[in-house]
């Protein structure tokens, strides 16, 4: 009996080595995969910087699009993107936060609420090109906005709306119940409690989520193509009903030309786009870290 036991435990001990080796190999593989993923990002950024950096100049930011690469710039695209975001930010923020407040604070736990909630999560999964089709049909044609800043801005607002709603809902849900109780206990009405206690507390979370959503809107191309935003624009818009072009449209235009010079311009445009996005993301991360401890 004792012998058998000893042999059995010896076998187990002998097997430990091979099991540990296997563990090490797998760990190595997984680590390589992780490293590889990081390298992809580094290569991507490196390639774009090397290709585009020489084309970055004051002139590049100051010039309109041109058939001659050396004279081409992104002025119209940058200004157009700013105009579009001037429509997207208030529209999406107001409707997004409003929807979130309704769903978290006012809506009953009933079938209608669940249905709205399901709608929102499904909308988040609809491809952006389909939002483009919606914008083309409703805003461009039905409402007659044409390929204007307003049409593109509304389309983008609808695209990012689900993201903002979900982020705001989470932020509102994270408001401690004790604070709401304190407010109600002093005789505050529901809206007073929401506007003076809940929203101020949820603002950092709402801001973080919204900034990330807006940075998505800045980089989206497909819906702009579908609503018919032109790429070659040599003037600046003066109102929301004007036609315009946007940064990703300009990059797309240059990328789809065969000449190498235009590709370099596209890379330079991408650098500008990425700098803007990284700045926005840093602000979002800063807000998140600053208020996380609370």
């Amino acid at each position: 009996m004792e012998n058998v036991e000893r042999i059995k435990s010896e076998e187990m001990i002998n097997r430990i080595d091979s099991r540990l080796t296997k563990n090490k190999v797998v760990k190595g593989l997984f680590f390589t995969a992780t490293l590889f993923t990081s390298i992809i990002l580094i290569v991507l950024l490196y390639r774009i910087i090397v290709q585009g950096a020489p084309y970055l100049s004051w002139d590049f930011l100051q010039n309109f699009a041109s058939r001659r690469p050396e004279q081409a710039g992104i002025k119209a695209a940058v200004v157009g993107t700013i105009w579009m975001m001037a429509v997207v930010v208030p529209t999406a923020a107001i409707f997004g936060v409003g929807s979130a407040i309704y769903l978290e604070e006012y809506a009953g736990k009933n079938a209608l609420t669940r249905w709205i909630q399901m709608n929102i999560s499904n909308l988040a999964g609809v491809p952006s090109v389909v939002f483009g089709l919606l914008g083309l049909t409703i805003f461009v044609r039905l409402f007659g906005f044409g390929n204007s800043i307003l049409a593109a801005g509304f389309t983008m607002s609808l695209l990012v709306l689900p993201v903002i709603i979900v982020a705001s809902q989470e932020a509102i849900r994270a408001v401690p119940n004790e604070l709401k109780e304190a407010s109600y206990g002093l005789g505050a009405t529901k809206w007073q409690t929401i506007s003076r206690v809940v929203i101020p507390y949820a603002v950092p979370g709402i801001a973080t989520g919204s900034i990330l959503a807006f940075s998505r809107a800045i980089g989206e191309t497909a819906p702009l193509i579908v609503v018919g935003i032109p790429t070659f624009v040599a003037f600046l818009p003066s109102g929301v009903f004007d036609s315009f072009t946007a940064l990703p449209m300009q990059i797309y235009n240059w990328t789809s030309r065969p000449q190498e010079e235009f590709h370099n311009l596209a890379a330079a445009g991408i650098i500008v786009l990425l700098v803007v996005l990284i700045m926005m993301n840093s602000v979002a991360v800063w807000i998140r870290n600053r208020y996380q401890s609370r």
Partner: peptide, 17 residues
């Protein structure tokens, strides 16, 4: 960052690299 890179940038990366 990978999640935040616009797809137009990925498209450019696919075509040119």
């Amino acid at each position: 960052v990978l999640a935040g890179v616009p797809t137009i940038v990925y498209g450019f990366f696919a075509l040119t690299f």
